[in-house]
Design a protein around this nucleic acid. Structure first.
Lengths: 121, 121
DNA sequence: GTTCAACTTGAACTAAGGTTCAAGTCAAAC
DNA sequence: GTTTGACTTGAACCTTAGTTCAAGTTGAAC
């Protein structure tokens, strides 16, 4: 598999794959006449990393994560807690947006329902 | 209220408040001898904006949002859908992290539970 | 033996969302 | 009348996560 095929297979651009490799998120692949060659399993790793990233982990965190560190368990637990908080944030924003849909013509902030809703947080 | 007091009250740094004002997210406040003076209601607006931001809206989107636009309802609905997708991403990452907690010693990607879990998405 | 697509590199550039800095102003306290 | 603390400005800087570019190589196809 070349980098282009891997990009195609995962939906992650080749430029990003090189970037991740340079920054230590991906193992250095075999080369044939200068070009990177990947085993099919490489795609799985990329997709997993992308999933972590979509959840808001930074590349730095994902990198740390792959090293079998002493603090790894604690890090993971902390991250889960953080994600729970972000889920709450998303729920709050959805509530604001739904109010905003209803108080259509008003300033999105002065709507009295906002105050009521936010008071409950 | 001075900008420092507003920052204190909202938890948003004064530098960020100035930045938001420059970028059209906040109304231009009154000045007394050159300094910005805010009504107490200003704090509420700041907290609402921050909540939107924590949900992943860009400042540009938040700015658009405050102008009573023709497409506003559609924008809001699109945003709600986007947030739902992001909630799903968070749930996936939580699942990966929980597996990672259990397959403690292994490479976080080669754990077979990953493949099973991700196959269900 | 040339053309072509896909790859290679390092360096520069982008975008968002701020923060930090230098240099200065202002009002109140002492 | 000077010290203090909080404010003012524009400009420069920062981080994250890449993308884009120029210049070059490679193998396969024609």
């Amino acid at each position: 598999m070349t980098i282009g095929q891997l990009a195609e297979a995962t939906g992650v651009p080749a430029s990003a794959i090189r970037f991740w490799e340079r920054h230590g998120l991906l193992p250095v692949p075999e080369r044939r006449s200068g070009q990177r060659r990947y085993a099919p399993e490489a795609a799985e790793r990329i997709v997993v990393l992308r999933t972590y990233q979509q959840a808001g982990l930074t590349l730095e965190e994902i990198r740390e994560f792959q090293r079998d560190q002493p603090h790894r368990q604690a890090m993971i637990r902390a991250k889960i807690t953080e994600i729970e908080q972000r889920t709450v944030d998303l729920r709050h924003a959805t509530q604001l947006l739904e109010h905003a849909l209803q108080c259509g013509e008003e300033d999105i902030v002065t709507c009295p329902r906002f105050r009521d809703t936010m008071a409950r947080w």
